[in-house]
Amino acid sequence: MRAIIEYFSTHGAEYLQMVGEHLGVSALTLVIAAVIAVPLGVLCARSPLIDRISVGIATVLRIIPSLAILIFLVPILGTGVLPAVVALCILAVPPILINTALAFSTLPAEVLEAAVGMGMSPARVFFKVKVPLAFPAAFAGIRTAAVEVIASATLASYIGAGGLGEIIFTGMGLMRTDLLCIGGASVAILSLAVGQLLSVVDRRMRRYERA
């Protein structure tokens, strides 16, 4: 315990910088993955062919370890933030894509028919009816991806992208339990905190259900 207190007293600024790097890489990854996966998920709900191809590829990508992807990308993209973000995007896209496709493909037909019967245009049906109904399941995919990305972003430091992984890898190299505890606990707390924050966002966005 004393070693942990000493670490924070002497490396506090460095620790905060690593937390910022970790969150920065994770946030950038999540934004890019959402921009790719959400529109593709909507297309999957409209086209069975695109759904089979996209979801099939996403399912395969989910079983590939992030470290293996990093090792493959380093000779192509070098080291730093870029290969880390690409590898983490490959991890984040599948849950967002699969949940979004499922959310938009399982909308209640009677509700959509009622909206059309009321004279709503296709654009209004999409934004006023489909999006609110699909939001819970689609956002669950984003929340899952966020937690997975933050947990896996420790590997980013392995290729020079910074983050809390530096503490973990340093602890492994020096056989220092205090550094391993600090790094592991920090990543776990960040994952739980972000997951809880997104749960709050989800509840606030769905206040209409309790109205």
Rank of each mutant, 00 (worst) to 15 (best):
R2V: 14
E6Y: 11
F8D: 04
A13N: 10
E14V: 08
E14S: 14
Y15C: 02
L16D: 04
Q17F: 07
M18L: 14
L23H: 10
G24A: 12
V25T: 09
V31S: 02
V42E: 03
L43W: 12
A45W: 06
P48G: 03
I53L: 15
V55M: 11
I57T: 13
I57W: 12
T59S: 15
V60Q: 02
I63K: 00
P65Y: 00
S66D: 09
L70R: 04
I71G: 09
F72Q: 04
L73M: 10
L73T: 06
V74I: 15
L77T: 08
L77C: 10
G78N: 06
T79H: 04
G80A: 11
A84G: 10
V86P: 03
I90H: 01
V93W: 06
P94H: 01
P94F: 01
P95W: 05
I96H: 03
L97S: 07
I98C: 01
A101T: 05
F104A: 04
L107E: 12
G117M: 08
M120W: 06
P122G: 08
A123D: 12
A123F: 13
A123I: 14
A123N: 10
V125I: 14
V125K: 08
V125F: 05
F127I: 09
F127N: 01
K130W: 00
K130L: 00
L133G: 11
A134I: 02
A138V: 08
I142F: 15
V147C: 11
S152G: 13
A153I: 00
T154R: 04
A156I: 03
A156C: 06
I159L: 15
G163A: 08
L164E: 04
E166T: 12
I167F: 13
T170E: 13
G171E: 12
G173M: 07
G173C: 01
R176A: 07
D178L: 00
S186H: 07
V194K: 07
V194M: 14
Q196L: 15
L198S: 06
S199Y: 10
D202Q: 15
